[in-house]
Structure formats: C-alpha cells, structure tokens
C-alpha cells in the first residue's frame, strides 16, 4: 500500500472535526462516535490511493463513515438496542452531510467566540475540554450540582453556536 500523500494527510486532518460531528450525531454516544471515527480514519488511510484529488473529500469520507456506523450498529446490536432507528439515521445523515465544508472557518470563528463567553462558562468549557474533567468532577470542584454544570455547558455551546453563526454570516473570522 503506497503511503498517502501530504495533501491527503492534510485533508484527513482538516476533516477530523466534521467526521466526529457526523459520527456523534448518528450514534449519540461520544465513545462509540470516537471508535467509529478512528475506524473510518483507518479505512480512509487504506483507500487513500482511491481518492481522486479534486473530488469531494468530505462526501467520500462521510459515505465511508456512514457505512462504518451501520457496521458498528450491526456488530453491537446483540449488546444494546439503538434508539435511533434506520429512518432517523438516514435523515440525520442527510442533514449532517448537507453542511458545507466548515471546519477551518468555524474553528477560526470559534477561537474568537470563546474569548467572548461569560467567565463562568469559559472556565467550565476550558476545564471540560482542555482538562478532561468529568461532569461529576467539575461539579465537585465548583461546588455546584451536576445538572447545573450540564446546563451551563449547554448554554455555553448555545452561545458559541450563535456567535460562530453570526461571525460566519457577517464574514468575520
């Protein structure tokens, strides 16, 4: 198997966030989403010579990811019941795929928006994502109930979504 080109590696790298968003939305479980994401990465790597430069990498990647999600569900069906049925999965996959290439622009906007978060929300986001603290641990550290931490995280993400959308619409990054 020939080693993928630097351009191909760059394409995979720049689509990691989108790939994870896709698998998370279809599986609704962070760990399973990460596992499928990694399996997809491996297949992308193995099939790198099949990718035609200039064609739609995101579409190709998400097609492989969708297949991997279905394989994952089949493998695990004996262990657990998935609450997302096949129809819902198709709808989510279609809507999730419809987003245009957004990672680089979204990340640039996100950096600016993080700075604008209220201090409490920014702190919790930092600790959650940068430090890897669990909700339970965050609650203990901050002397708050776990539901309150979850609510703050949700609000922080909502604020970030609005801020990023605004900046992208206004052409600010």
């Amino acid at each position: 198997m020939p080693a993928p080109s630097a351009e191909f590696i760059q394409l995979i790298t720049s689509h990691q966030s989108r790939l994870y968003a896709y698998t998370l939305s279809l599986l609704g479980d962070r760990q399973q989403a990460q596992d499928v994401m990694q399996e997809t990465n491996l297949i992308l790597w193995e099939k790198s010579d099949q990718f035609r430069p200039g064609s739609n990498f995101a579409a190709w990647m998400l097609k492989i990811a969708y297949f991997q999600v279905m394989t994952h569900r089949r493998r695990r069906r004996k262990l657990e019941q998935f609450v997302f049925d096949d129809n819902l999965l198709e709808n989510l996959a279609a809507e999730s795929s419809a987003a245009t290439d957004w990672q680089e622009r979204q990340q640039a906007a996100l950096q600016a928006c993080l700075e604008k978060l209220p201090e409490r929300q920014r702190e919790i986001v930092h600790r959650r994502y940068s430090e890897g603290y669990s909700i339970r641990k965050l609650a203990g550290q901050l002397g708050a109930a776990a539901p309150a931490i979850k609510q703050t995280l949700f609000r922080a993400r909502s604020n970030l979504i609005k801020c990023v959308q605004f900046r992208l619409q206004e052409g600010i990054s």
Partner: peptide, 12 residues
Amino acid sequence: HCRMEASLAWEF
C-alpha cells in the same frame, strides 16, 4: 450541538 461539540474537542 454535535458540530459545536466536535469543534470544541478539536479546538482543545
């Protein structure tokens, strides 16, 4: 929210 979750995970 899935997209933002992924963006934050990538950012950090």
